[in-house]
């Protein structure tokens, strides 16, 4: 099987869904002729025409608003935000309109809002966001973030087929840096299921997105010192797969929750609290959160490296837990 990049996998998944279901369409800024700022939608305009690959003005609220309206009429829109940071512009319409619609009226909004998130590329304070925590607090909205090309394709297809709004976060660091063997046959990766990326007995690291790779790097280093890390890749951030997390904690009794978004009020707080509530008697040490600093994302590579969690920090946290 040929290797496919994370980016290409998302494009394939989107194209396959558009081909097999003509209710599915793409909408966003510069996604047609240009193929999207990161080229995720390259070629779709040629294949599906301007009616199903819609270039919009710079109007994020209009994009999501139009997507919601068309979804009421039976369409399944996939909206691209050029950078996920600009989801802030459509926060209202996404959380108040789209996410509450089913609860208020019984009208589901099968909408996927996708876009590049995450740092590590010197994008600076406005092109590096990891906004999951802002939306975790929104009932009615699902959140997904793949870490591999295989998952990226399987999850985008599952998100498109899902009957509720899904925020689909694509880590831009992974777009062209991660490659997998991706099957050509139709498959989905079901929403709501975490996966154990690496089994181990000593400490569990719960993470997702680009940090999955950082955690695996740390796990490799630690393996040389006979410390066995279990790495859980959440894949879906809402709803969370607590079963997989708690099963692992019951085995290792020590857990680190690792994410790239800022620490305070991050998804790690929610997961750590749930582990303390539901897995208390399995804990041999307090749950640890590792996350970025509570500052905006700085631009300079040196500052950003100091801002984001690193392999060294993970190793240090694990060492501490092992000794604890």
């Amino acid at each position: 099987m040929a290797k496919t990049t994370y980016l290409e996998a998302i494009r394939q998944g989107l194209a396959e869904e558009m081909a097999s279901d003509d209710r599915v369409y793409a909408i966003g800024e510069d996604i047609g002729l240009y193929g999207g700022a990161f080229k995720v939608t390259e070629g779709l305009l040629n294949r599906f025409g301007a009616e199903r690959v819609i270039d919009t003005p710079v109007s994020e609220t209009a994009i999501i608003g139009a997507a919601i309206g068309s979804a009421y009429l039976g369409m399944r829109p996939v909206a691209e935000l050029q950078f996920i940071d600009f989801v802030a512009c459509c926060f209202n319409i996404l959380t108040n309109f789209a996410a509450k619609s089913r609860y208020r009226w019984g009208a589901g909004v099968p909408l996927v809002v996708r876009g590049p998130c995450g740092g590590g590329v010197s994008g600076g304070p406005f092109h590096s966001a990891n906004p999951e925590a802002h939306f975790l607090h929104t009932p009615g909205l699902k959140i997904v973030e793949p870490s591999t090309a295989y998952d990226a394709k399987g999850l985008i297809k599952a998100a498109i087929r899902d009957d509720d709004p899904v925020l689909f976060l694509e880590h831009k660091l992974l777009y062209r840096r991660v490659q997998d063997e991706v099957p050509e046959e139709d498959y989905v990766v079901p929403l709501g299921q975490a996966v154990v990326r690496r089994p181990g007995d000593d400490v569990t690291i719960v993470t997702f997105g680009a940090m999955t790779h950082t955690a695996l790097d740390a796990a490799n280093q630690l393996a040389e010192r006979d410390v066995a890390i279990e790495v859980i890749d959440l894949r879906t951030l809402s709803p969370l797969d607590y079963e997989t997390i708690l099963q692992s904690v019951a085995k290792t009794n020590k857990v680190i929750v690792l994410h790239e978004a800022q620490r305070t009020g991050g998804i790690g707080a929610e997961i750590a609290a749930a582990i303390a509530e539901r897995g208390f008697e399995h804990l041999d040490a307090p749950p640890v959160r590792l996350a970025s600093l509570d500052t905006p994302v700085p631009y300079s590579p040196a500052l950003e490296a100091a801002f984001r969690p690193s392999v060294e920090q993970i190793v240090a946290a694990v060492e501490h837990l092992v000794e604890y």
Partner: peptide, 15 residues
């Protein structure tokens, strides 16, 4: 990550 040291650790982690 390799090139830069981490002089500023995250605030004290759990344990």
């Amino acid at each position: 990550r390799v090139a830069s040291p981490q002089p500023v650790k995250n605030p004290p982690t759990g344990p």
